[in-house]
Write a protein that binds this DNA or RNA. Structure first.
Lengths: 195, 195
DNA sequence: CTTGAAACCTAGAGCTCCTAGGAAATGGTG
DNA sequence: CACCATTTCCTAGGAGCTCTAGGTTTCAAG
């Protein structure tokens, strides 16, 4: 009887594939075992539990995503970099919704500390923003707003949360125009008089 | 033997409570039945299945949320309205994370068409934006960007996706300042030369 | 060829959702 | 009050899921 020759990496890859096709929540240990023609208990030699499998999918997705973003942003600055970053982000999320969804799970520090993905991702964001000449704490604020806007957009788009009339692509492009303008005109210090 | 006197509404309320306390994914039919000291099969007289329970939680949360936002926005315009809207949105989401999470599930049209929540929510957003003098399709684009930014921010905050140094509150306030500026200076038509 | 590690198995506990069909409480009606 | 339909809740059970414990088979290196 030939063995499947499983490894944690193969399981993760197959699970990620499955997540993109049928949705992250349908990726179960049983389903994955079926996919390899193996009993579900066998998978526990390679992964600790379902949770770990999901974290692995997330780390895989995160790594792939930052890689693509890095390639897209390379050699660009200012609006070019912003648009390249944002488009690469969106493209990846739409092409790999399951992996992207895994990325959005809530992690404990231990689950991701030893991974370079988070740090690398932060570097990319700050690198892209540097061209706008922002200084801390504006840099942090702007980075947070951008991350929020990107993620929020994707989330709404994947969830079908947008009405039909105007295409998402057009809104997305215009929103990026707007965010670019925003970054160029980031408001001066706390304007407490109005709050 | 005294009966629990269950109704769909009571179940939904208890489930929402439970979702806020222990997380939406831990709200199970079994757990809910235990909470009422009843067998799980008994709940199926009141709700069709787990899916329906979740949709009900989402509709409840959505209704409560739009209500609070409407109250906060009433009588305000421009930046006042924007800040009131955003703060009410964030406040509700942080106070009721389980209900909010339910709100973000992916729904089929049938599950929400008969509900006024979606329409009401859209009205509030567009109403708030009207003071900025935007015309379609900018109105739609701006609304989408705002929704994305709000949701993205909350999602990252709830997921602990923000590093510690700078408080989220400060970043949030500054981001709102920035979004206000953005809405006042929404860039003119498609600037295709740069893309 | 032996041996130890890795891959895979069987067996089973415990939780989940959900269905089918029956019993008991409730509330309105004659 | 007695009856009856409706609603509420039950028992029983199937099927799927996660995960553990412990045993067997394959494989590669000595």
């Amino acid at each position: 009887m030939a063995r499947a020759g499983l490894t944690a990496a193969k399981l993760t890859e197959a699970a990620a594939e499955m997540a993109d096709e049928v949705g992250l929540d349908r990726v179960t240990v049983s389903a994955l075992a079926r996919h390899f023609g193996v009993k579900d208990a066998s998978l526990y030699s390679h992964i600790k539990n379902l949770r770990e499998l999901r974290v692995r999918i997330a780390l895989l997705g995160g790594a792939e995503m930052t890689e693509r973003i890095a390639a897209a942003v390379a050699g660009r600055a200012g609006k070019d970099a912003l648009v390249a970053f944002a488009d690469a982000y969106r493209q990846y999320a739409l092409a790999h919704p399951g992996r992207y969804a895994a990325t959005q799970l809530q992690f404990t520090p231990e689950e991701i500390t030893d991974s370079a993905v988070v740090r690398r991702s932060a570097e990319l964001t700050y690198g892209m923003l540097r061209a706008y000449g922002l200084a801390e704490p504006d840099l942090t604020d702007a980075a947070r707003l951008l991350r929020a806007a990107f993620h929020g957009y994707i989330h709404l788009e994947l969830g079908g949360g947008f009405g039909h009339p105007r295409t998402v692509q057009e809104s997305w492009d215009r929103s990026l125009d707007a965010l670019h303008v925003l970054l160029e005109n980031w408001p001066a210090r706390p304007d407490r008089s109005t709050r």
